[in-house]
């Protein structure tokens, strides 16, 4: 069995801590932006310009 401490690098702790904090800040920003974008897209409402072809097509009714 390979224990975790045997697999770790010898990079100084301060360097890992700095990049760790950088990652945390970046990921928090990206996650907030992702969730915000989802709700922005959902809040834009329905599309009415969908192209439907062929017989029997059911068109999108006009927005109330």
């Amino acid at each position: 069995m390979l224990a975790t401490h045997e697999a770790a690098s010898d990079v100084p702790a301060a360097m890992i801590a700095t990049t760790f904090l950088g990652y945390m800040g970046l990921y928090a920003f990206l996650l907030a932006a992702y969730v915000g974008t989802l709700y922005y897209l959902a809040g834009k409402g329905r599309r009415t310009d969908v192209t439907v072809e062929g017989p029997g097509a059911v068109p999108v009714p006009s927005q109330a």
Binding site: T4, S9, A17, F20, Y23, M24
Partner: peptide
């Protein structure tokens, strides 16, 4: 905590 490179490496990898 901030002077343990193994723990920090774990935290960083876990965050990712």
């Amino acid at each position: 905590m901030l002077d343990d490179p193994v723990l920090l490496a774990r935290l960083q990898f876990a965050a990712n």
